[in-house]
């Protein structure tokens, strides 16, 4: 991460994890975030995601994560950045229990993930929305059925599905594409479907792994705007991205990973909490020449 790009915020290098550190960071952050007002932090600061010195070594010997420690509070919008192989996806995959850490503990909403048995993993995953770079839609299903599948899995009745799916598709702007198959949609539209599917259960936590990696800048902004809109409903959103320009313009909290270590954790300047999605999108399209970004 070149220094010139960084905002002045509360930039800190984390030398190594240690006790008391998360408290130190939290106090720095709350200082910054005090500005918009006391109601700025929905959920009263309950921790949704907590990594405590998590290390993961792949069977091939590669390091996935190395003593990663961080926490995310409810309602936050957090970017995970870093170059390829820095461990962004590993964080995502451990969060949905696709991978098990070699050491350290991960808790989500206060629950230690290592205590969830294999049989219970599906039930756990229903509380997490997941968006991928390659969309991961079911190719044999229409837009409607792709979204409905997430509800069928959780045992919703047909009536509930019929009520909820059109709602979420309207929110994501797909009302006219209901009966199209994924291969008949553009990349941006497919990503919208996958976001709709991730959010239809209203999960408290939404993970997006390079959601704009395959999309052009304009479409990327639309997708980010959609994620922000979801964030504003109170959902905690964690986005992995390598698009530094976009991340800087978003002005949200940034966690940077390198070689599996957390090397930066900052709440970027001008973290505007009560911004409307329209203002948000406008700012993304025309970045203000704020002194911090120079």
């Amino acid at each position: 991460m070149p220094n010139s790009r960084q905002n002045s915020g509360t930039r800190r290098r984390l030398p190594a994890s240690g006790p008391g550190q998360s408290n130190a960071r939290a106090s720095i952050r709350s200082e910054r975030l005090a500005a918009p007002g006391p109601s700025a932090r929905p959920g009263g600061g309950r921790t949704v995601v907590e990594f405590r010195s998590v290390s993961l070594r792949y069977p091939s010997g590669d390091k996935g994560l190395d003593q990663a420690t961080f926490s995310v509070e409810r309602g936050e919008f957090v970017f995970l950045i870093g170059s390829t192989g820095s461990g962004k996806s590993t964080v995502m995959r451990t969060l949905i229990k696709e991978l098990e850490p070699t050491s350290g503990t991960i808790s989500v909403a206060g629950r230690d993930l290592s205590e969830i048995s294999r049989a219970k993993v599906p039930y756990y995953r229903r509380n997490i929305g997941m968006v991928f770079q390659d969309f991961k839609l079911l190719p044999n299903r229409t837009v409607y059925d792709n979204v409905a599948y997430a509800l069928q899995v959780t045992g919703h009745s047909r009536r509930e599905i019929r009520a909820k799916v059109p709602d979420i598709l309207r929110l994501t702007g797909l009302s006219l594409k209901l009966h199209n198959y994924p291969d008949q949609l553009s990349g941006g539209e497919q990503q919208r479907v996958s976001i709709a599917r991730a959010f239809v259960n209203h999960p408290p936590l939404l993970l997006a792994d390079e959601p704009t990696g395959n999309l052009d800048p304009d479409t990327s902004i639309d997708i980010m705007r959609l994620l922000y809109r979801i964030n504003r409903t109170g959902t905690t959103v964690l986005v992995a991205s390598h698009d530094h320009a976009m991340v800087n313009r978003m002005r949200r909290r940034v966690l940077e990973l390198s070689g599996g270590r957390i090397v930066r954790d900052e709440a970027t300047g001008l973290y505007v909490r009560d911004e409307s999605t329209r203002e948000f999108a406008q700012r993304l399209r025309n970045p203000p020449q704020a002194p911090e970004s120079l």
Binding site: Y124, R126, Y149, A150, V153
Partner: peptide, 16 residues
């Protein structure tokens, strides 16, 4: 197999 993978990620149980 990709389809199965997606179903698992959405939170479907094995028997579902």
């Amino acid at each position: 197999r990709r389809e199965v993978e997606v179903m698992k990620l959405v939170g479907a149980t094995d028997w579902f």
